[in-house]
Amino acid sequence: MRNKFDMQLDSLKEQLTNMGELCEVAITKATEAILEGKEEQAREVILADEEIDQAEKDIERLCLKLLLQQQPVAKDLRQISAALKMITDMERIGDQASDIAEILLSTDLKMEMNNKDIGVMAQAAAKMVRESVRAYVEQNMMLAKKVMTADDEVDRLFDKIRQEIIEYIAKENGDGGEDAVDLIMVAKYLERIGDHATNIAEWVEFSVTGNHRIATEVHERKSAGEVK
């Protein structure tokens, strides 16, 4: 019975890895589509979002099967519960990559501003997604903490891009305002992807230790009398 459970757990990890790879490719392709004006590639990202949605359903089905049929205990139960939470974040990452692609298809984006930092931000966010899923597969707390720390860099890049856009609009006396709004939306979607990757890393921490960062913080605040 245990051998069958271990095989199914390995299958869960493999499916999570594949879903993470789909998300990573979607982020990269969506950003390239925006920066290089590749409309066909943008359409591919939107179609790929359906594949990510299907992956979420498949993994959810496997998790429920493991919960109902195998009656996992302790650490196994945490791994399955964490996976159910992780796929919600990955599905949203797919949505946000699709939203980035939609910007290109629904606007006349010219990308006349310096957009080097957008590419750097996209690479950083995609790496966070890849490493957060790998941290789960390997049950690697050091890698999970590295992902959490990396979110600070993604946030810093968002702030930098936002300031660059403000300066661009001021310099151009308001010209290019629509493009500036579209670009800030791209950066905001990437910033949110970083947040979702951080969420995944926090669920890795739960699967390894049994503690979840948010729940722990709330408990500490209650103990201190800050939360009723």
Score class of each variant (00 low, 15 high):
E217P: 04
L183A: 02
V73I: 15
Q139T: 00
N199I: 00
G94V: 02
Y168C: 04
G210S: 10
A74L: 15
V181Q: 07
V147D: 06
E205T: 10
A97D: 02
S106I: 10
G176S: 05
A124T: 14
Q79K: 14
T149I: 15
G94R: 05
A150N: 09
Q123W: 11
E102H: 09
E220V: 01
G174E: 03
A124W: 00
M142T: 15
L77Q: 04
I184M: 15
I165Q: 09
A187G: 07
V133M: 06
I118Q: 08
A74P: 12
D179W: 04
W203N: 05
I214Y: 14
N140V: 06
N211W: 06
R213Y: 13
D89F: 01
V137S: 12
Q96G: 04
I87L: 01
L157G: 04
T209A: 06
K85S: 10
L77C: 08
R162D: 12
M142Y: 11
M90L: 15
V73G: 08
N199L: 08
A150T: 01
G176A: 07
V137Y: 00
L84N: 03
A201R: 00
S81V: 15
A101E: 01
E202L: 02
V73Q: 14
A144L: 07
D89W: 00
D99K: 13
A74N: 15
M121H: 12
Q163G: 01
S98P: 00
V154M: 09
